[in-house]
Design a protein around this nucleic acid. Structure first.
Lengths: 120, 120
DNA sequence: CTTTTATTTAACCTTTTGGTTAAATAAAAG
DNA sequence: CTTTTATTTAACCAAAAGGTTAAATAAAAG
């Protein structure tokens, strides 16, 4: 059991387009596995596996209602990922640090007369 | 050339702790490959591979200065990931939406007379 | 030129990932 | 009970990921 750290598990779960799509669909409300699987060109067991990955990452919660196992979005599990990325937000918003500062400087020189715009 | 979509490539790049650590160290400034590799218990070729993954995701940029190939953080490449997650932020901040509200309601009701649910 | 320093490429190996089909299980319905 | 519906598990497979060591390349230094 190679229990990876939380952040790795979350980012890995998000690195698959099918899984991101599933989360997107669940944002509108609960869905069962078969309903969830419908739009994708893959077998049900494949979806079951994706759901397991999402569940292990804490991104969905699963209920039970008769033979259905409805999936529910657990958006707060995204918070660690959001927090991690947040630490870098200033880097692409401000752009002021170290030699970036210098780069911006010569950029401004080149763009004399232009309004202040961040980034590109 | 399996060209995966941008978001998948970014999240996949972030799903490895060594790569996240590398990005963290680069936030302080440029570093060469050998310097970058120093703290990790792995070979230089392994680091080269990680850098390639980061570069393909656009998260770092590489320069050249004599025999050194300095790495620079390209934080703005995180924006698509940040934007994607942002769409879910309200879900964990508000907590009250749609049927979540209802579900929380019946959960409270059920908890009134009931003890703990069955485990696994 | 030869050597040293920095980094990459090649070849290889093991584990994980993402998918498959066939069979198993769970609960409702007939 | 038997069948149907919903979902999972098992067994398998190919490709990708993450690492290794040994050899190759690039540029500076002697």
């Amino acid at each position: 059991m190679t229990s990876a750290d939380t952040l790795s598990t979350i980012f890995a779960a998000l690195s698959d387009p099918t899984r991101r799509s599933i989360l997107g669909r669940l944002a509108t409300g609960e869905l069962g596995v078969t309903e969830l699987a419908a739009p994708y060109a893959m077998s049900l067991p494949a979806i079951t596996k994706h759901l397991k990955v999402l569940e292990k990452a804490g991104l969905i919660r699963r209920g039970r209602s008769a033979q259905w196992r409805p999936c529910q979005l657990e958006a707060k599990a995204l918070k660690p990922a959001d927090d991690w990325i947040s630490a870098y937000r200033k880097h692409w918003e401000e752009t002021f640090d170290r030699l970036d500062e210098y780069l911006l400087e010569i950029q401004k020189d080149a763009a004399k007369g232009k309004k202040h715009g961040k980034g590109k």
